[in-house]
């Protein structure tokens, strides 16, 4: 172990379960660790595990029990606990991961924090990937009827329910198995971000892309810190850590994924994959069919004493403000 600096240092063990070259790792985890050490002048040190100490679904428990100190959580794994963040999965909320993520964090601060969903851990930040497009290997998706009985890969949770409600047959195997289900024709299309299209080497099986303005859905993540470790830090260090967390986390992670999205779309165009934006008629149809998702979320929010309609309006407003 390294020699301890003169002042009592807080050492944070950051559990990493994504591969080293994953954009979240290079774009956010590592810069965050450097920022934290820089602004606290070394009083807070961050080290990374070389492999995960718990499987991805167990990250919350791992952090709340202090097995590791910091970790990323795919919020879907705590879907019973974290119902407010599902706002980030809703359709038509924004294309850019930066916009969506920053808006999510601001909405969290203003509306969700009081619901105290993160009881038992310290939430450092929230982020999302960009708005999901519709990808298909055989035909362009131009109307809801084009999805009827089509086998589509969608991430589990609300996105899965939404796409299923459009008549598609949804398959939600984990990302690592995505190549198998796409390459073997078990699914003919996917609903994901452009980076997601390319991430699992499935681009060769895609022929058509339909961009839905604002995205059909997205995926949200949290950065968690052990509560005891947080409480053990001085007020000043807590402030310093938060000064490089929160919105910065959403921005850094989002920037990286937005870049990769652009790269993937450029590659797709170079390969002759068709790219079109959903027609106003298609968008209208989608909005009608997917209205249940927002309604359901607003109802859930009410259960936690949150004004869901106001929160949604605020979220949209935050995205719009960033687009100016």
């Amino acid at each position: 172990t390294a020699p301890t600096p003169a002042k009592a240092a807080t050492e944070l063990l950051f559990n990493v379960f994504v591969p080293p070259k994953h954009p979240f790792n290079t774009g956010m985890f590592i810069p965050w660790a450097k920022d934290v050490m820089r602004v606290t002048e070394g009083r807070v040190k961050v080290s990374f595990t070389t492999a995960t100490l718990a499987p991805p679904p167990k990250q919350w428990n791992m952090i709340s029990k202090g097995i590791a100190d910091v970790a990323m959580l795919a919020n879907i794994f705590e879907r019973n606990r974290l119902t407010m963040n599902v706002i980030g999965d809703l359709p038509f909320l924004g294309d850019s991961a930066v916009h969506r993520g920053v808006a999510l964090w601001r909405t969290h601060k203003k509306f969700f924090e009081k619901a105290n969903e993160y009881k038992g851990v310290k939430l450092l930040g929230l982020w999302t990937i960009s708005g999901a497009h519709l990808f298909h290997g055989k035909k362009p998706i131009r109307a809801v009827s084009d999805l009827n009985k089509e086998k589509m890969w969608v991430i589990a949770g609300l996105p899965n329910k939404m796409i299923a409600s459009l008549g598609a047959v949804v398959v939600s195997v984990p990302g690592v198995k995505m190549f198998n289900v796409v390459s073997k024709g078990i699914v003919n299309g996917k609903v994901t971000s452009p980076y997601g299209m390319n991430a699992f080497k499935t681009m060769p099986y895609i022929k058509h892309i339909t961009k839905v303005p604002g995205g059909v859905s997205s995926v949200t993540f949290s950065l968690l810190l052990n509560k005891k470790k947080w409480d053990s830090m001085s007020k000043k260090d807590q402030e310093l850590v938060m000064s490089v967390s929160g919105e910065t986390i959403a921005r850094n992670a989002g920037k990286k994924t937005d870049q990769l999205d652009a790269k993937a779309l450029k590659m797709a165009k170079a390969k002759g994959i068709t790219y079109e934006t959903a027609s106003p008629a298609f968008v209208k149809e989608l909005k009608e069919k997917l209205a249940f998702a927002s309604k359901g979320w607003v109802a859930n929010a009410a259960k936690k004493g949150v004004d869901g309609n106001a929160a949604l309006a605020y979220y949209r407003q935050q995205v719009a403000a960033q687009m100016k």
Binding site: T1, K58, I67
Partner: peptide, 18 residues
């Protein structure tokens, strides 16, 4: 030794249940 005893006890509990 590397991480302290409290996290260790929790880690072992987690592994047993897992």
């Amino acid at each position: 030794i590397l991480r302290g005893w409290e996290p260790t006890l929790e880690m072992i509990s987690q592994q047993i249940l897992d």
